[in-house]
Every structure is written in C-alpha cells, then in structure tokens.
Design a protein around this nucleic acid. Sequence first.
DNA 1: TCAGTCTATCGAATCGATTCGATTACGCGC
DNA 2: GCGCGTAATCGAATCGATTCGATAGACTGA
Lengths: 360, 360
Amino acid sequence: MATGRPTIADVAREAGVSPSTASVVFSGKAPVADATRRRVRAASDRLGYTGPDPRAASLRRGRSGVVGVVFEERLGAAFLDPVKTLMMDGLAEGVAPLGAGLLLLRDEVPASTSEPAPPAEPALSLETALVDAVVLVGASGRLAASLEILRARGIPVVVIEGDAGAGIPRIDLDNLDAQRQAAEHLRRLGHEHVAIVTLPWSGRRRRGLVAASREDDPSIDVTRERLRGAREVYPDATVFETAASLIDEGWEAGAALLRAVNPPTAVIAQSDLLAAGVIRAAEECGLRVPQDLSVTGFDGIALDGFAPYELTTLAQPAAAKGRAAADAVVRMLSGEDAASVRFSCAFRHGNTSGLRPRLD
Amino acid sequence: MATGRPTIADVAREAGVSPSTASVVFSGKAPVADATRRRVRAASDRLGYTGPDPRAASLRRGRSGVVGVVFEERLGAAFLDPVKTLMMDGLAEGVAPLGAGLLLLRDEVPASTSEPAPPAEPALSLETALVDAVVLVGASGRLAASLEILRARGIPVVVIEGDAGAGIPRIDLDNLDAQRQAAEHLRRLGHEHVAIVTLPWSGRRRRGLVAASREDDPSIDVTRERLRGAREVYPDATVFETAASLIDEGWEAGAALLRAVNPPTAVIAQSDLLAAGVIRAAEECGLRVPQDLSVTGFDGIALDGFAPYELTTLAQPAAAKGRAAADAVVRMLSGEDAASVRFSCAFRHGNTSGLRPRLD
DNA sequence: TCAGTCTATCGAATCGATTCGATTACGCGC
DNA sequence: GCGCGTAATCGAATCGATTCGATAGACTGA
C-alpha cells in the first residue's frame, strides 16, 4: 500500500507469517514460537509498525479501555473541589488494572432549539462517546436523562453521590449520620445557638440566609442529607446557603452570621473550605476560635495554608470512593454485578471546636 | 440477528433503505429526503438503535474525537495546581468545537524489569491510547521518550510549558521577562536584599536553600526561566527551592528565610501559592506586608480565602494557554500546521509590595 | 420534447485487527 | 512403523459503520 502507516497485514507479509500469527505476537493471547516472534518483531521494526491500531482493535474486541467520568459542572469548577480531585485520583488508580483511561465528559444540556445544527463535527457526548463504562459524579438534575441515554446504549454506570434508582451501583457516604455526629459533638460542648452553612441547594446557585419558612429540601443529595443530620440535633438552627464550596463563600456566610444581632456560638459548615472561610471571618470580627466560636467542617481534606488550625471535621474517604467506583466498574465489565457501597466518615476532633463560651 | 444490539444494517433493512442511506441520516453528511429520514428514524426507534457505534465509526473515519492530555504527576497532584486547572478548562472548551473529549493520561515510567508481565490487560498508555492528538503538559524528564512514541505513531503533539524541539508547536509564557519585571518593580521600590522562592527544580523534589555554589540550572523550564529573570536584576539573591507549588511550602520557605540572621526585605515567589505561604509566615513572625516585607507572586490566580491581600503578581493567561493548545490541535488535525504561541504575563500591582522599609 | 442538471439513493469496497476452528508438523511411546 | 497428543500456525469470517462513484428519477430550460 503506497499510502499511510503499515498495517499488521504488512508486517505479517514482511515476516512471512499469517496476519493471525502476527496479531498474536502483539497481543500475546496464544503461544508463539520464539523464532517466529523474533521474525515478526524484526519485520515490524523494519516497517516502522507501532503496534495495533487501537481503533480497529477496539472495534473487534468490543472494548475501548476508556471509562467516562461525567461532571455536572465545568471541568475547572469540578477540580476546584479537593474532594473531587482526590476522588479522581482514586478512580484513576482503580481503573489502572483494567488498563483504562479516564475520559472527561461534561453533562451538556442538550442544544436548544435556537441552534439547530451543531458545529460541523458531531459533539462528543454521552450519546456518542467511546466508553466502556461511565461514572457519574455528583449527579443531580440531568441525572435521569443521562442514565436513560446510557441505559439505552447498554453501558454500565456507577453513580457517586447521587441516587440512580434500583440496579445501579452507587457509591456514597453516611452524610446524615456523620453530620449528626458533629452536631451532637457541639451539643455536648454546650452549644445551643448554632448556625449551619450549607453547600448549594441546587444547580441554581445562590447565596444567603434560608428563610425559616422555606419548606423545600435541597435538591442536591449531599446538601440535603447533611442538613437533615444537623437538624436532627438543632432543628431550629439558622441556615445559610452558599453558592459553592469555597473559602470565600464561607467567609461571606461567616461575616453575615457573626454580624447578626444574636450571633451563634457554633457553626456547622458542610465542607472544610466553607469552615475555613467562616473561621477567617470570625478572626476578622475579633473572635477567637474555638474560645469564642466553634466551627466544624466536613470532608477532612488537607487544607493548604491553614495552620495552626486543625479543623474539627468529618473525614471522608474521598480517594476510597473513587477506588470503589472503579472497582464497581471493573466488576461490571467482567460480567459480575456490583453492589453499592456506603462509606462512613470518621469524626475528627481538631482545635476549632470547644466549650460554649460563658454568657456575659 | 439473535444476539446483541441492532446495527445500522438492521435499521436500514427495517426502514427499507440501504445502509449507506441510513448512515447518512445519522451523520448528516449528505442530503436526505424528509420522508426517508423519518422512515429511518422510526425504524431505529422501533429497534432501539441508539446511534452508530463509536468504535466502528472511528475505525472508518480514522478519528476518535479524543484528545489525550498527559501529565507528569499523579492526576490528583496536577489538579491541585490552580493554573493547570484553569488550563484544562481552556483546553476542554477549545476542543469542544472539534467534538472531542479529553482523555487523561499519566506519563508512566515504563514497567521495571522486576515486573515482567503487566496485568492481564494491556495498560492504556501513550503507546496504545486511542487518541487523535496529545497535549503534553509541563513536560520534563520523560518528554523525549513520550515524543518519540507519539512521533512513531504519527500523532500530532502540542507541548505546554516545555521545549519539544523543532516542528512541535509549543505554548508557553514569557517567564523570564515577566519575572524580571517583578524584580525590577522591587528594585524601583528600593529593595536590595531579596530572596527568591522557587518552584521545584526537577522531578526529584526537595526543599531548602540552594547553595550559592550550586551552578547547575533547574531542569524544569518554568523554574529555570523565572529564576533567570529574577537573577538578571538580583544576581546574588538567596534562593530557596520548594518541593511543590503549595501554600504550605511557601510557608516553610518564608519561615526559613525570615528567621535568618539577615532577612530579606522582599521575596520573589515563583507562584502565587508560594507567595501566599510566605506572607502567612511573615505574619507569624510579626512582620507586616507590605510595610516590613514585600512579596511578589506569579500566576495571577484567584487565591481563595486570601482577602484582604491582593498579590503583586504576574497574571498569566492560563485558560488562554489551554485554548491555544486546543486551537493548535484543531489546526493540526485539519492538516494545517500550527505555530507556537508565547503568551505574555501582565504585571499586576497589588498590595503586597511597597517601599523598602527604612533601615534602623 | 430532449438534452442537461440536480437530488436522493444504492452497492460495494474499505478501515485494521482479532478470533476460532482447522491444519500442519513434530516428537514420542508402544 | 503407526497412531496420537501437543504446539504452533494459518484462513477466513467478523466487528459496524462510512464513503465514493454510479444510477435512477425528477425537474429545468430551450
């Protein structure tokens, strides 16, 4: 063939063997005589053959060695979250034995009617992506639609932090119990007036106090469960919703809560980043932590640049979650069915929570 | 066919058209009569056909719609770096018009001889990954080897922050000039005794003062260029090497430098995170920034939780770098050749640098 | 009305490797 | 010397879609 790269057939011809034998030399799926192996190797060197074309191989094999990871946010936003980052790490490690790579996908909202024809190229999405399995992360709004697409395509799915319905393995945390533990910890320390700083309630992110009259629950699972856990101990706590898990958001929340007429003596933050922000805000108000204000976080991440504080928090096994998801994927791909896994958070008593300050 | 999912041939038969016509209905590459389109659509609905199998399509097309992104570190470590995160964002956006996804790859060190046979499955690596193009990020040690593999496979490559040799588009910054600007800024403010806190010098990360006698240059490009830029103004500055771009690392460096017998009046940090750490260390030593100590950073990222400081820094267009890499990929895939791009950093005067304190 | 466009559709070749059942060759025991 | 088991190799079918040149109608204008 005049054009293009050599194919395995070229190599086979050059080596004087059949294509099947040449193929076997590369895949190692059957015994090959040493001499033959060497002949094929030599031929492929001579021709500059760099191994089987993954496209063709994956067509024939029916496997591509790629696991899709779907985020509901912009990729950049997803990686701002240390928990997700750790989880990705676990995921990457977990799929390694499978020889798979991770394909980052964003859960696009389908093109609106205003734009009829997408670009020239068909967009790579859940519908078309070349993946053996998919992990949905922090799924919420579009979850159902995504699942439907994947179910139709017959692609195995694992969901992290979200309810996917029966038959789909999910990996999550004992969010409610864990958060209740933190609240009970504060109650034991004597705190009565406690505020809760929550993660976003829904995709439509906003910031501010949640009116006591508001009866609806957060539509994001994590937020809802942690809120419930805290409310089991402090049903009447003031609740402040943030727009993202960021130190700055925690700062805003802290500033608002601590400047109120009757500031809380303790704050339950739904993430470590939020807690860090609350603590910074407290410092700026002249409050000492934990003497004047107790703060609990959630996640147990390594907070860069936060010494000497060590958050009282709930350490979640973020990397293990990723690993578990990967394991589930591996199992599903080998035909077994995978069970859901619920991880527990470990309560960690740091130096940001203490006895309720004496009332003056 | 008794088994498996329906193919486009099944759909065509069901609709009473030829496979080619059915294919065209899905790809839209040729005009199709409305009635025919509807017939095919109906047939595929009836059969539960979910669109062309990406494996087969990519074999025939010779394109997979996947762009590989190679990091030299663990994935988790890579995403700890806000600059890389932003860059990924730009990259993701930039390849979108191409309809491509990003496949995360780690630049593995080849298996040592100790472990002869990898797992049953062949590992997905640069050698075998199904990608149309690859972006190498922050490449260093294994760069040459990776390039060789990709060159042999005939896969287009773009390198971000690293020298790939002739013919390979690279995306980088005017690191040297930019860092010199910061140094000149400090010189104008009257600073004479300045310390430099650098990023890691090589893959083998260590932390500590760099002996004045040490003559070798950092092997990591970014570190080397920024160091040179600073030294053009302050050839004799004390140099402290860190093990990673982290606030805590900056803190270590700051603590060491500021407790020395003759502490500097200004610190040039090679990243914003390092600068933030230095500032925290200064605070703990009872120094005010910028009255007692000036600190400059590099990157211009939004430092979460760092108010009220605004770093004096060099803002680099991180997302634009990613976009540029993506554009280069797009161009190369359409046969044109892509030029290298060098971005400029914008000097930003924040509130962390000021006049040299009066000597007492 | 007929040559001369367009359009929509069809057939058949092709992308490159894998796989499995069949075949050859060889060594060995009886 | 014959049959048989084993190991290595071969052939041919297959994976599922895409593409390009050919063709059959339908339509236009002279």
